[in-house]
Amino acid sequence: MRQLKRVLIVFGVILSYILFIGIFFTNKVMYIRKKTNEEILEREMMLGHYKEDVYMKLPKKELTIPSPFGYNIYGEIIDVQGSNRYMIFSHGVTQNTLNSIKYMNIFLERGWNVVLYDHRRHGKSGGKTTSYGFYEKHDLKAVVDWVREQASKDAVIGIHGESMGAATLLMYAGGLEDGADFYIADCPFSDLEEQLTYRLRADYKIPKQLIMPIANTFLRLRDKYSMRDVSPINVIENIENPVLFIHSEPDDFIPMMMTQQLFEKKKGKKQLYLAKNGMHAMSYSENREEYEKAVDEFLEEIGHGKEEILS
C-alpha cells in the first residue's frame, strides 16, 4: 500500500510538472506581451523615425482585409500618384504598424506605394494567438492578394519583414506561394524551435529536452500546430524570387548565424547585408546610410532601382 502511495505521489509530481511546463510555456508563446502604441512611439520618436506632423499629412487610407481565419486584418495604404510599385511591411512580434514607419520612409522617398498591416493579435487586427508565422503567413497572402487585385497587372510588389515578420514572409514565399517580386528579410529566425532553444539556454540555462517535447505537445493541442511547423530554413529553397537578407552582427537575441544559414540555402538571386552596429532589429537605426545603400544596390541588381522608378 505504501509503495502504491509513493508511486501515485511520484506520478502526481510528474503530471503536475508536465501540466505546469506545458501551460506556462505555451501561454508565453501564444500570448506574448505586446508593446503599447505609447511604448513604440516613444522609441521611434527618440530614434528620429517618427514625426507626427509628417506622418499625419501622408495620404493614408485605412484597409480592412478578411483573414482566412475569420477575423479582419487592419492596415493602411499610402499611395504615391502614378506609381505601380508597392511595398508591403510585415512587422515583428509585440509590435504593430507604427514599428514599420522607419522602413516605410525609405521606400516612400524612392517613389513606392506602401502597405502597412498588423499581424493577427497585434495592433487593430483580430486573432486570438500569436504563431510566429504559421498562421501569419496566410494573412500575409491575403494582403498580397488584395494588393494584386487593386494594382495594375504590371505592378511590382515587394515585401519587407522584420524579425517574426521576416520569418513570416519567408514562410509565405517558401511554404505557400512565391507571390511577391522580391523580399527583404531583416533579422529572421531560421527555425522557431531552434530559436526558442537558443533563448532557453541564454536566459534560463535550461536544456531543451526538459521543455520542448512537452511544449510542442501542448502547442499542438492548444493552437493546432507544432514549433517544427515554423521553419523558414525548411522552405527557403522553394523561393525563386530575389531575397535581400539583413542582420546585425551584434544581435544576441536572434543570432546572425540564422540569417547566414538562410542565405546559404537560398537558391537564385540573393544578397546579404551584415550591419556592423545594432542589437536585434536595430540594423537600420544604427546603420542608416549603409542600410539604405544595401537596399538600393539590391533593387538596382533586380531591376527596380532608382532610375526605373523615376522613368
Rank of each mutant, 00 (worst) to 15 (best):
H247E: 00
N216L: 06
E39L: 05
Q209D: 08
D181Y: 03
E240N: 08
V115F: 13
M104V: 11
V93S: 14
M256I: 05
F107P: 04
L196F: 04
K265F: 01
K57Q: 10
L15R: 14
K205Y: 11
D229Q: 07
R199D: 06
T197I: 06
K60Q: 13
R33S: 14
L176E: 01
Y183C: 04
I9P: 09
R228V: 00
G161W: 02
D251F: 06
S16H: 08
F253L: 11
T94K: 02
L272G: 00
D145W: 15
M1G: 06
A142Y: 04
C187Q: 05
R85S: 09
N234A: 15
L210N: 02
I233L: 06
E136L: 05
F298D: 07
K208D: 03
L58K: 13
D252Y: 03
I65D: 06
T26E: 00
A185Y: 09
Q261A: 15
Q3S: 10
R201H: 11
K269H: 13
E162R: 10
M282C: 03
M171V: 08
E39G: 11
A180K: 13
K61V: 08
N27K: 12
D191H: 08
W112C: 07
I14A: 15
S285V: 11
S283N: 14
Y50H: 00
Y86F: 10
I18Q: 03
L116K: 15
G22E: 00
K57R: 06
D296W: 00
Q81M: 04
L15C: 12
A202R: 12
F218C: 10
E308A: 12
T129L: 01
L176N: 09
I78E: 01
Q150V: 06
I18R: 02
V13C: 08
K265C: 07
L274E: 00
R85L: 05
A294K: 12
E249A: 10
E264F: 10
I214M: 09
D229W: 07
D53N: 13
L19D: 02
E44G: 02
G12V: 09
H247V: 01
L15D: 01
Y17D: 00
Y172T: 13
K306W: 09
A166F: 02
L47N: 12
Q271C: 13
G303A: 01
K35H: 15
K270V: 05
